[in-house]
Amino acid sequence: MRLFGLKNCDTCRKALKSLGEVEFFDVRSDGVPEYVMSCAFETFGDALVNTRSTTWRGLKESERSRPSLELLAEHPALMKRPLIERDGELFLGWTPDTRSALGVV
């Protein structure tokens, strides 16, 4: 299982603690492989962009209108977190549905 997030994100830390053995990738320093990001965008669409983030609020309106994948490549902290990959299946966020699907109580 792989978790893509930010090392200083409280939600990502909660997920890491609950999941146990997980390969962690900090999206700022490690990035997200292009194929994972493409699959995530196909699965979640624009929900992959965290429009409530500080990074989003700091963008000009002209930047916000750019394609989501371009924005995420340029500003990885815009990605909603965590993005979890398990055996080719993707999960976004640390919601009750995600926790249930991953078998976390």
Rank of each mutant, 00 (worst) to 15 (best):
N8Q: 14
V36K: 02
K17N: 14
K80E: 15
P67N: 11
T54P: 00
L71K: 04
L6T: 02
T98Y: 02
E21R: 15
R99D: 08
C9H: 06
Y35G: 08
D46V: 14
T55L: 03
D30K: 09
T98L: 06
F91A: 03
T54V: 12
E70S: 13
P82A: 07
Y35D: 15
R57Q: 11
I84M: 07
S18R: 12
G93L: 05
L48D: 09
R57H: 13
P96N: 08
A47K: 12
A40L: 07
D30W: 09
S62Y: 09
L90H: 09
A47D: 14
E21N: 15
F91W: 10
A40Y: 09
C12Q: 02
T55A: 10
T54D: 02
W94I: 10
G31R: 02
N50D: 12
H75V: 09
K60T: 12
D97Q: 14
S62N: 11
K80V: 06
V22C: 11
A40W: 03
H75C: 07
S62F: 10
C39F: 01
V27L: 10
E23M: 00
E70Y: 08
T55M: 04
G31K: 01
E63T: 07
K14V: 00
K14W: 00
K14T: 00
E61I: 05
T11W: 12
R13C: 04
L83P: 05
L69N: 05
V36H: 09
T55Y: 02
E70W: 09
L90E: 03
P67L: 07
L90I: 09
S53E: 01
L6K: 01
D10S: 13
P96D: 13
A40F: 08
G88Q: 04
R81D: 03
R52K: 15
I84R: 04
R81N: 06
V32D: 06
D30A: 12
T98H: 08
V32P: 06
S29I: 12
W94Y: 15
D87T: 01
L83N: 04
P76V: 08
T43N: 07
K60I: 00
E70K: 14
N50V: 04
V32K: 01
E70V: 12
S68P: 15
R57K: 15
L6N: 04
F41D: 03
A15L: 10
F41T: 02
W56K: 04
C39Q: 14
C39E: 15
A15Q: 11
S100H: 13
F24N: 11
R13G: 05
P82Y: 03
T54M: 02
F24S: 10
A47N: 07
R57I: 05
K14E: 06
L78H: 02
E21L: 03
D26N: 13
L19C: 12
G58Y: 07
L59V: 02
W94E: 11
T95D: 05
R57P: 01
R57N: 11
A47T: 07
P96S: 11
G31L: 08
K60W: 01
N50W: 01
D26F: 09
A15M: 09
R13D: 04
R52W: 00
R28F: 04
L59G: 02
E85G: 10
M79N: 01
L19R: 07
E61P: 06
F25T: 01
A47E: 14
R52A: 12
E21V: 11
E85A: 13
A47R: 13
G93D: 10
E85S: 11
T11P: 13
C39T: 14
